[in-house]
Amino acid sequence: MSLTVFSILGLASVIFALLMVLTKNPVRSVIFLILTFFSIAGQYVLLNAQFLAVVHIIVYAGAVMVLFLFVLMLLNLNAEAEPRQTDRWKLGAAIAAGMLLVTFVGALRGGIQITVPAETNPQVGLVQNLGKVLFTDFVVPFEIAGILFLAAMVGAVLLAKRDVKI
C-alpha cells in the first residue's frame, strides 16, 4: 500500500519536474512546480511528517510560488521573452545532468546502511515533538534564522528602492 502511494507520488513529482524544466512558458513552469511541490507534500504525509507537509504547502505553494507568479506577471515575461539556448547547449546540459545522476547512483548504490531502531517513534514528525526539539536543542540556530529573515527583509526593501541613499 505504502509502496503504491510512494510510486504514484514519486512518478508524479518526476514527471511534473521534467515538464516544468522543459516547458517554454515561464508561467506554466510555475504551475508545474506547484504540482511537484504538492506531490512532495504527499510524500511527507506518507512519512508521517504531517507538520512538515503543512508548512511545506504554506511556505512553497502559498508564499514562494505566488511571489514568482507575481514577478512573472508584473514583468510580463512569456515564451518569446526568454532567449533560446542552442540545441548543442541543451544536449551538453542533458549529458552533464545525466553524468551527475550516474555519479550519484554509482556512489550510493549498495552503500546505504541504516539500522532502523527496533522501536521507532511514529510521533516524531508531529508538531509537539518538533516544537520541543526546536526550542531546546536548536534555539541558537532558530534565533540566527530570525536574524537572517530580518536581513532578507531589509535587503528586499533596499533592493526595491534603488535610489535610496545609505
Partner: peptide
C-alpha cells in the same frame, strides 16, 4: 525516528523563503 532531520528541513525552508523574497525585490 530522529527529529533533527526535520528541524534541518525547516532551516532549509527559511533559506528558500529568504531567497525568494530577495529575488522578488
Amino acid at each position: 525516528s530522529d527529529a533533527q532531520g526535520q528541524i534541518m528541513v525547516f532551516f532549509i525552508m527559511v533559506v528558500a523563503a529568504a531567497e525568494a523574497a530577495w529575488g522578488w525585490a
